[in-house]
Nucleic acid binder design. Structure first.
Length: 537
DNA sequence: GAGCACACCCACACACCAC
DNA sequence: GGTGGTGTGTGGGTGTGCT
């Protein structure tokens, strides 16, 4: 039996401990995949441990003692006098490095020349050690990382710490011959999952990412405490708070800058105007340049984008309220998030399940769903079921009692809004039915909650805005017509009338809408209406 | 079944451009 | 200069198939 010039005697192979195919990397292989043979004396105290290690990594334990005619490597924990033996450390180091090491470095003090057979084996070992670490199994090529490649990746990251998360950086690394065969994704993944914990230092770099050298031209090691920031930096809750504060302050200064000698600001008709902290607060572009000077962690463009896409949607004062409330209770506030997918999903789910122009059919469907999901509960509950809310506006002629129950008036007035805000925020990850139930407990009837969801596209921030405005109206206006009281029209909050304008497609109507709603909100409303089956041009 | 290599996803930070 | 639109690719993952 002959493989690539290495003679395996029938005796050797028959008695050999076979290679375990347990998914471990094949380290102790000759080029071509043939396993290396090792001999460990039966009385060797470390025999079991190293048999396990060697076979786990692709080697074979032969029962035949090494002879000049075979290429079996004798391993021992001590010097065997005249016999050529190698230390177990060879096995450990090869496994740790992920590739066969130079066997010569592990030889016990043997004075003579290795015979031809051993030299042959060693040459093969050297070849394996310098291979790129490619493993061929069942005709499939995989590229394994090893110590050399890992060190190279770590070195590159240490030299470019600013780019340590960059996809592009790792894509570029994939073109380096040292990492041939690996994709950028693969190298990036290797770094993130295995190597990042080992990155205990980096080379010192300037803010532009260039390496800094000492007076001898040597690169300077730096601790991770001084790790440069990456290309993009997530906005923190503190930064959002700072931005919101700055926006509120700017608007307040601008508003009261227009006050008369009595400190009163008046509208075009001469009526005193109030500073609406919860309204749409705007800032000029120069605001962001100024902000970036005092808060250089983000560029003016980034601050502006943050405002455009998050703060203006959520509401600056609303976030300040949220932040203060959470920190006051010892919690950790979260940065402003975009539309929560779970909320959007929940709304979609609700709309998909419940929205029908025909109230009765929707109700029938809900009851049948209840029955199918939990028939006992459904039967018990059925007698108590009032018509379940749909995502729809309240009807003209709605009474105050149909919107708000007695439970509402049991809650101290100053606690109503905080309580509702808390419910809205806590339900952002839940199904809408949970929201309906919770709001019902505070006195909001299900059809009123459905109205609020309909008016706000189910957007939590807008729902808070709606509730704030509604409660203010309750406190300050005579409630002649509850229907009118509930019609709130402002940016991102809709009424049947504004919907009709949007659906008309009439340019004059759209122009009128644009006086109240910004482009994003109009687009969002169009998508929402389409979702619930309303035709929008 | 676990570990690994690799593919793929998605929100959003940052930038740039046109008007 | 202000504003809206949009492209790029980072940051932070999850999914999949192989060993």
């Amino acid at each position: 039996m002959s493989f690539h010039g290495i003679e395996y005697s029938p005796e050797m192979v028959a008695n050999a401990t076979t290679v375990a195919d347990d998914g471990m990397p094949s380290i102790f292989n000759f080029p071509g995949g043939n396993p290396m043979l090792f001999y460990i004396a039966p009385d060797e105290p470390l025999r079991n441990e190293y048999v396990h290690k060697i076979t786990n990594y692709g080697g074979v334990i032969a029962d035949t003692e090494p002879r000049p005619s075979n290429q079996i490597i004798l391993l021992s924990s001590y010097h065997l006098g005249h016999r050529l033996a190698y230390k177990f450390l060879f096995v450990d180091d090869s496994i740790e490095q992920g590739a066969v090491q130079n066997l010569d470095n592990y030889r016990f003090g043997y004075e003579g020349e290795a015979d031809d057979a051993t030299n042959h084996a060693y040459e093969a070992i050297k070849a394996v050690g310098s291979s790129p670490g490619r493993t061929v199994r069942n005709g499939r090529i995989t590229h394994r990382f090893n110590k050399v490649k890992d060190d190279y990746i770590l070195k590159q990251v240490r030299m470019h710490p600013k780019y340590r998360n960059s996809h592009k950086f790792f894509d570029d690394l994939a073109n380096h011959p040292q990492l041939e065969g690996h994709t950028g994704n693969s190298i990036r993944s290797r770094f993130r999952t295995h190597l990042e914990p080992k990155l205990d230092w980096v080379y010192k770099t300037a803010s532009d990412g260039s390496l800094i050298k000492d007076e001898h031209g040597q690169l300077i090691r730096d601790t991770l405490d001084n790790l440069p920031k990456t290309l993009k930096n997530r906005f923190t809750a503190e930064e959002d708070y700072e931005l919101c504060q700055a926006i509120v302050d700017f608007n307040r200064a601008r508003f009261f800058g227009a006050a008369d000698e009595h400190g009163i600001v008046r509208d075009e008709t001469g009526k005193p105007k109030e500073f609406d902290l919860y309204g749409q607060l705007t800032v000029p572009i120069s605001f962001f340049s100024t902000l970036a000077k005092t808060n250089p962690m983000h560029t003016p463009n980034s601050w502006r984008d943050r405002y455009r896409k998050f703060v203006s949607r959520y509401g600056a004062k609303k976030y300040i309220d949220y932040y203060d409330k959470v920190t006051a209770s010892g919690g950790v506030p979260e940065p402003i998030k975009g539309d929560s997918p779970s909320t959007a999903k929940a709304i979609k789910q609700l709309i998909g399940l419940n929205y029908r122009k025909d109230t009765q059919s929707a109700l029938d469907e809900e009851i049948s769903q209840l029955k199918s999901s939990n028939i006992d509960l459904a039967i018990i509950a059925q007698s108590q079921i009032a018509p379940e809310p749909l995502v729809k506006f309240i009807d003209r002629g709605a009474t105050l009692e149909s919107l708000i129950s007695n439970a509402f008036f049991q809650v101290p007035q100053e606690e109503v809004e905080p309580r509702i805000t808390e419910i809205l925020e806590s339900c952002s990850q839940d199904d809408i039915s949970v929201l309906i139930e919770k709001l019902k407990a505070t006195g909001f009837e299900p059809n009123f909650t459905a109205h609020i969801v309909m008016a706000t596209n189910g957007d939590v921030a807008k729902m808070q805005e709606y509730v704030h405005e509604f409660l203010q109206r309750m406190n300050t206006q005579a409630i002649a017509d509850p229907y009118e009281l509930a019609q709130i029209s402002r940016n991102g909050i809709w009424t049947p009338e504004t919907d009709a304008m949007l659906c008309s497609g009439n340019p004059a109507d759209i122009k009128r809408l644009q006086q109240t709603h910004d482009h994003d909100e109009i687009k969002r409303r169009g998508n929402f209406l389409k979702l619930i089956g309303v035709s929008v041009p």
